[in-house]
Design a protein around this nucleic acid. Structure first.
Lengths: 331, 331
DNA sequence: CTGAAAGCGCTTACAG
DNA sequence: CTGAAAGCGCTTACAG
């Protein structure tokens, strides 16, 4: 592999000059610059990233920690983050915390050892260990890590949109399958829904909301729906809203197994808009998280050292109406 | 951050000795070793990875290139690779080629710049650019890159298992929805199926197989199935086998839309055993790829420089029978 | 505007 | 068995 030294020699300049040209320093005279650039091309020179990292104390790397890359939402987010990072000349180091705070702590430490430009962390659900990041920028995404700034979806206001939409369809008995209330995301989605519901209830006291707490996964949604749907048609909810698409897909599955038509007998809605949401039968009404925007902002915050900016970024979710919701059955 | 120098000073030894202790060199006397270890703990010393990489010309990093991390199969594979790499003290750099060979080439070059221990690449479908990896170990996984050794599932023999299974159920009119025949994976799965089918046909000349080429994705499966299932019940296939779970799930969707019962009227099977396969209704019969084994072998090949070993590793897929297949309808 | 030189934090022959 | 020293390939004050 060619080094700066080789380039300098071929271009008949000093290594310092080569370095300056490479770093787009404008104080190099054109004649020299061209000689250097030609030598770079001729030798097919590629800078040694380890040397650069050692010298500058930062590598053009972004560390990314997610609970589980096989969760479709995190897969989408990771993809968008990688795309944005790559566009900006950075590489992403990925680790899975397996939703375990001890592992998460180790992963973060290991990533910090590689002097990344910054860390983007979707924290695991159990309480995270405190992280001392030193110089390194750390941004939470989706789920906050410690007290680091968060880039996430405005869960409350997005969830509120869903409440308004279902009530406007005429639903009066609504069940909400909440995520773990130990998590911010779980709490915010529930609270946003509940508060909006309560506002509508002032107009229409007949509205009723029942809430059940579960996990964000398929099984939890299926399990909760199974007992809910056991009730006779006149009493059970006419709309079931889940705190995640995975839960909602579990609900669809339960309804199918119990021969209850969606959306004719019961409407079902989710949250996230994972790829699968538009592939299930019927297609799922949900709130789309704008992962591209989340990714862009997170990467930007990590790369541009707006040092001192500790503010959160909240991005609106979009209500996406598909086939799984409709008017409640005439009763 | 503490450096070897600090540790050496505190432990009253030379930096060389510190380095030897850290690298588990056994020639250091116990007394010194303990002093060093204590100093390491006291100072909370963490080696500077960039310096180590510069000096040794290799970082404890594995580069991973997949076409698309939101594809559930690659997500599972990436997770297993990351877990295995992490277990062995290595970090994974992830990039998505977006199934584009130009991008793939750039990603590989960028990863090689960071002097990784090795590269694991699931190549994109279009012809890949040639890669000069220099010293670095490169292993293909699932889809071969250039002429690099491959760790993958034995597609042909696994596909053959599915043929035997369906024929043993009594199916005589079988449709096979193949993946792109420009890809090894697509070809191998089709050929394995067809060859096994032909063997059975010697016994039972009434068997018929029709083959349709598509993409590996949901839409392709749905699209192909839609026209297939238009035929009247006595003439259309009684079993549809897809080259991927995503295609098979598309088939399920088409059947559902057309009110054709699975598996009563038509059996459906896939390949891969993505998470979703056991979540759709009915649960999908498929061939499970053993991603954990694939991951373990790929990481091992990349880390242990069995230099010169250019052989492929083929791992059997497991037939997983679920609810989407059954006996053909009585006719 | 350009070059000579120091130094980032390690590892590794080489002496002793 | 241990230490002193060179050097990996860069970047960056500092002279000139």
């Amino acid at each position: 592999m060619a080094t700066v030294k080789d380039v300098a020699q071929l271009a008949q300049v000093s290594v310092g000059t080569v370095s300056k040209v490479l770093s787009k320093d404008t104080t190099v005279k054109d004649a020299l610059r061209e000689r250097v650039l030609k030598a770079v091309t001729d030798l097919n020179y590629r800078p040694n990233m380890a040397a650069r990292a050692l010298r500058t104390n930062r590598a053009s790397i972004i560390g990314l920690v997610v609970p589980d890359i096989t969760n479709p939402f995190f897969a989408q987010l990771a993809k968008d983050i990688e795309t944005e990072a790559s566009r900006r000349g950075h590489t992403v180091m990925l680790t899975n915390s397996h939703d375990d705070s001890i592992t998460e702590g180790h992963q973060i430490a290991a990533l910090l050892d590689r002097s990344p430009r910054g860390l983007i962390v979707a924290a695991c659900n159990d309480t995270s260990v405190t992280v001392k990041s030193g110089e390194t920028q750390v941004i939470s995404v989706d789920r906050r890590l410690g007290t680091f700034p968060l880039v996430g979806t405005d869960n409350a206001s997005s969830s509120a949109k869903m409440a308004t939409y279902l009530i406007s369809l005429g639903h009066t008995r609504i069940a909400y399958l909440a995520g773990p209330q130990s998590t911010d995301v779980g709490r915010q989605r529930l609270e946003g829904f509940r508060e909006q519901f309560d506002i509508h209830k002032l107009q229409n006291p007949a509205l009723s909301l029942s809430v059940y707490e579960g996990q964000f996964d398929y099984d939890s949604g299926e399990h909760l729906a199974r007992s809910l749907l056991l009730e006779p048609a006149g009493q059970r909810p006419t709309a079931i809203v889940a705190a995640s698409d995975q839960m909602a897909i579990g609900v669809l599955r339960a309804a199918r197994d119990m021969d209850i038509a969606v959306p004719e007998a019961v409407s079902v809605a989710g949250f996230d808009d994972i790829t699968l949401a538009s592939l299930v039968v019927p297609r799922l009404t949900t709130v789309a998280q704008q992962t591209e925007l989340l990714a862009r902002d997170a990467v930007q915050r990590v790369l541009e050292d707006d040092n001192g900016d500790r503010s959160d970024v909240l991005i609106d979710g979009d209500l996406v109406v598909r086939g799984s919701t409709g008017r409640p059955p005439a009763s």
